[in-house]
Structures are given as structure tokens and as C-alpha cells.
């Protein structure tokens, strides 16, 4: 039973990160790419939980805790960068 749920979880995380990858590449704005990063973070945490379930060890959950903290910093940093970038140049892919 647990094996089945781990399989479903890993498959779901891989499909979701595939979608996120598409958005990460396609853009079209910087904000879209950061949103895709959020989905990648969720998929990564889901994979950490799957690894913890498969091995019944808590080490992988520690990794997930760290991820949840660090990805937040990354998102905020990127958002500040977008916000303070000069208009018209320095933001490739911006629709204008």
C-alpha cells in the first residue's frame, strides 16, 4: 500500500515539475518564471517526503524543512530584483 502511494507521489511530482519546466522556459515575463519556481519547490518537497516514506528515515524530512526555508528566500530575492530592475532594459522578455 505504501509502495503504491510512493509511486503515485513520485509520478505526480515529476509531472508537476515537467509543467513547471515548461513555464520556466516559456516565460513570457520574469514573474512567470518565479511562479514556476514555486511549483518546483512544492514538487521537491513532495519528493523529499516520498524518500522519507520509502526509507522510514527522518533525514529526508530535514532536507525538506531546509528547502521550505531557502526557497522562500530565493523567491523574495528574485521578486525584489524584478521590482527594482530599470524599466525597458535589463528585463529581457518583458512584454513591451
Amino acid at each position: 500500500m505504501i509502495g503504491l502511494s510512493i509511486t503515485i507521489l513520485v509520478a505526480g511530482a515529476i509531472v508537476a515539475s515537467g509543467f513547471a519546466m515548461y513555464r520556466l522556459v516559456a516565460g513570457p515575463t520574469q514573474a512567470d518564471r518565479v511562479v514556476a519556481l514555486d511549483i518546483l519547490l512544492a514538487a521537491a518537497i513532495a519528493l523529499c517526503i516520498a524518500a522519507a516514506l520509502a526509507t522510514a528515515r527522518t533525514v529526508f524530512l530535514d532536507v525538506a524543512v531546509g528547502l521550505a526555508l531557502v526557497a522562500f528566500v530565493a523567491t523574495i530575492g528574485w521578486a525584489r530584483l524584478i521590482e527594482q530592475a530599470p524599466r525597458g532594459r535589463g528585463t529581457p522578455g518583458a512584454p513591451r
Binding site: M1, I2, L4, S5, I6, I8, L9, A11, G12, A13, V15, A16, S17, G18, F19, A20, Y22, R23, V35, A36, I39, A42, A43, A46
Partner: peptide
Amino acid sequence: ATLLIALGAVILVIAGWGVV
């Protein structure tokens, strides 16, 4: 547990689909 995890995985896929 399997039901919850499977539902969560499906919602994760739908979230990814929504981003696309």
C-alpha cells in the same frame, strides 16, 4: 494514507497544469 497522498499528488499535478 494512500488516499491522502494520492489526492495530494493529483492536486500537485493540477497546480502544475494551472501554471501552464
